[in-house]
Design a protein around this nucleic acid. Structure first.
Lengths: 344, 344
DNA sequence: TATTAGCACTCGCAAGTGATGAGTGCTAAC
DNA sequence: GTTAGCACTCATCACTTGCGAGTGCTAATA
C-alpha cells in the first residue's frame, strides 16, 4: 500500500514528466509548492516507488520517469476528472454547426478536431455496416451489360456495387428483381444478406427472372463482397512532433502501421461503452510499445456504431484526452441519433 | 552545347547517384567500363558540367551530384525508354484479376501496387465527379423527418446525402418529386446541378409538391453541397525509407502535407494526357523541394477521369517510374472503360 | 524516529581533437 | 588532348575531457 506522501510524489512526478518529457529529479520536485519536502526525503520515497515498480531511471544517475505500471496506477487512481474549457467546448460544437449531409463527413471532421485539440493522432472507426439492416434495394443499369446495385440501410448508409448484367436481361426483369429483393430482404442485417439471399429469395428470383444463373453469380458476388469498416484518421503527422518519436526508426514504424488498416482494429477494445485506456505494451502491436491508446465509442440510439481512439505517446496528457474524448463521443452520438432517428 | 563525352558523363553520373545516393567522384566513374577515361579527364569534364549548372558539389572536395537543371536535362534528353519486366507486368495485371465491384477499390489497389513496385508514394486522384452526368435520382426516407437523396451518375458513381424532410410531406409527394427530378435532370452535369435545379426544375416542383419552400432549402443544399475529389494514397510511409528524409524535419513536412488534401491538387498538372515530370522546386510547395512528382492520367472512353502521381525524392528512378506509370495508367483506363461502357 | 544536509560518485551530453580517406584542382609530362 | 602526380580540402568517426544534473549513503538534526 502506498502512503499519502508516496501517492503525492507519484502523481506530481507523472504530471511533471507528462509536461516536460524530461526525467524528473528530487531537487526539481521539492521546488514545487505542492511538495513541501526536501530533496533527500523525496529521493528516499522515489527509491521506494522505484522498488515497487512505479518509477524507473533512464540511467544510474538520472531522474525518474514513470514505468508502465506507474502510468497504469496514475490512470486508475490518480486521474482527477477535469472540466473541459469553454474554448474546447466551442471547438467541439463547431463540428455540428453546419448542416449535416453525410455521416462520413461528420466523422472525418470529428477526427480532425480531436487531433487538433489534443495534438495527438485520432482514429475513428466508421459504423460497422454489417450490423445495419436493409432499408431499400435499387438497381440502375449503366450500359447493356453492367449495372450498379445500391443498398440503403436503416442508418442512412449507402452501399453500392458494380456488377455484370447477363445478355438479354430486360428492363422489366430488373424491375421485378428489385421488387422481389425489397419485399424479401428489407430489414435483414447486412451480414446475413448472403444467407438470406440464398435461402429465401433465390427460389423466388429463379421463378420470375430469365438468365437467373448468370445473374445471381454476378449480382450475389457483388452484393455480398466484404464491407470493410472504414477508418478515418485525424492528424497522422501529429505524433511525429512529440520528442519520443524523434527516432526515425520509431516514426517510420508508426506511420507504416497506420497505413495498414488491417492492424488498426486490434487497437480497439471489443466494443464496449465507456472509456478504455491501453498503455504501452498493453497494446499488442510492437510498434505501439511507446504509445498509449484511449478509446471510446459512439452510438445511434442505443446501438453501438463505431469507435473513437486517440493515439499518443505513453507520456500523453491522459486527463485532457479522457475529458475531450468523453465529451466528443457523447456529442457525436447525440447528433447522429438526432439526424437519423428524427424526432426533433 | 554538350559534347558526346559530356553527355555520357552526365548520364552515368546521374544514373550512379540515383542508385547509390552518394556523391559520385571521378575515380569511381572511371572504373566503370562505359567510361574509358582517366579520373583526371573526368574531373575536367565534370568541372565544365558544373560550370554549366548541370552538376553540383555538396562541399569543396566532395564528389558531384546532379543539380535540378541536371535532372531536368537527364529527364528530357537522356532517359532511354525501358521495357517493363514481366514480373512487373504480372503485378499490374493482378489489380484487375478479381471481379470489380467498386471503382474506388480498384483505384485504391492501383495505388498500393504502384507504391509497392516503385518503393515511392503514389497518389491517385479519383474521378472528378462534377464532370459526370446524372443517370438517376432516388430518395429514401429514413424516419418521419429525414431522408437520403441518392444520385447515380453515368459513370456508375453513387453520391448520397442526408437531408431533412419537412413535416407532413407524404410518400406520394416524394414519389412525385423523384419522378420530376429524373425527368428534368437526367443527363445534367453534376456541376450544373444547382443551376439546373433552380432554373428549370424549381417551377415544376413548386407546382406539384406541398411544403415546397422548406423542402428545397434542405434538399437543394444537400444535393449541391460540394463534391470533393477523393484522394487515394499508396505507401505514405515509403518515402520515409529513402535517405534524403532521414532528417526528421523534412519527413514531418511531407507527412503533414499529405494529410492536407487541399494542397495535393497543386501537385498535379492541369489534366493533360501523357506523362509529366516536375523536379524539386518546380513543385511550388516548399515541402516538396527535395521531391519529384511524375504524373499521368487515366480515362474512361475518351474522357479524362483522374490522375495518377508518384512522389519520390529528386533522386528517384525516373526511368522505372515512367515505364510503370505509363503501363498502369493505360491498363487502368482500359479496364474501367471495359467495365463501365460495356461492349465485351 | 522521521527528516534533512552534506558529500562522493555516476553518467549522459556537448565540445574539442586528431587520424583517415575520398575527392578535388592544378601542373607538368606524355 | 589526355593523363599521372601531388598538395590541399573537408566530412566522418573514434576518442577524450569537462560539466552538470542527479543519485545513494551517512551523519546530524528536530
Amino acid at each position: 500500500m502506498l502512503t499519502n506522501r508516496q501517492l503525492l510524489i507519484l502523481q506530481v512526478t507523472v504530471d511533471d514528466f507528462i509536461q516536460t518529457a524530461q526525467p524528473v529529479g528530487s531537487r526539481q520536485l521539492s521546488k514545487k509548492e505542492e511538495v513541501p519536502f526536501s530533496p533527500a526525503t523525496i529521493r528516499n520515497e522515489m527509491a521506494d516507488l522505484e522498488e515497487m515498480g512505479y518509477l524507473e531511471k533512464t540511467h544510474t544517475s538520472s531522474g525518474r520517469i514513470p514505468s508502465e505500471k506507474g502510468y497504469r496506477f496514475y490512470v486508475d487512481h490518480l486521474l482527477t476528472p477535469q472540466l473541459a474549457s469553454s474554448d474546447d467546448m466551442l471547438q467541439i460544437q463547431s463540428v455540428f454547426q453546419e448542416r449535416i449531409t453525410e455521416t462520413e463527413q461528420v466523422i472525418q471532421k470529428t477526427a480532425k478536431i480531436l487531433s487538433d485539440l489534443t495534438s495527438y493522432t485520432s482514429i475513428l472507426l466508421g459504423p460497422d455496416v454489417r450490423k445495419h439492416r436493409v432499408k431499400r434495394f435499387s438497381i440502375v443499369p449503366l450500359s447493356n451489360d453492367s449495372a450498379v446495385a445500391i443498398i440503403i440501410t436503416d442508418s442512412g448508409h449507402v452501399e453500392n456495387r458494380l456488377f455484370q448484367l447477363p445478355h438479354g436481361l430486360t428492363a422489366s426483369d430488373i424491375e421485378k428483381m428489385v421488387n422481389i429483393l425489397n419485399e424479401q430482404l428489407t430489414g435483414v442485417h447486412l451480414h446475413d444478406l448472403q444467407r438470406a439471399l440464398e435461402k429465401e429469395t433465390a427460389a423466388l428470383l429463379k421463378q420470375h427472372i430469365g438468365r437467373y444463373g448468370e445473374l445471381m453469380s454476378s449480382f450475389g458476388a457483388a452484393i455480398t463482397s466484404p464491407q470493410e469498416e472504414k477508418v478515418f484518421y485525424g492528424g497522422k503527422s501529429k505524433l511525429l512532433h512529440h520528442p519520443e518519436f524523434k527516432d526515425l526508426q520509431k516514426a517510420r514504424g508508426l506511420i507504416t502501421m497506420m497505413d495498414q488498416a488491417n492492424q488498426i482494429s486490434t487497437l480497439f477494445s471489443p466494443n464496449q461503452a465507456g472509456i478504455h485506456i491501453r498503455i504501452g505494451s498493453e497494446n499488442t502491436l510492437l510498434e505501439m510499445e511507446d504509445c498509449s491508446v484511449i478509446t471510446a465509442s459512439y452510438t445511434i440510439g442505443e446501438e453501438q456504431m463505431g469507435s473513437i481512439a486517440i493515439i499518443g505517446p505513453t507520456r500523453m496528457d491522459y486527463r485532457r484526452v479522457v475529458t475531450l474524448l468523453d465529451l466528443m463521443s457523447g456529442d457525436l452520438s447525440r447528433e447522429l441519433t438526432r439526424i437519423l432517428r428524427g424526432s426533433r
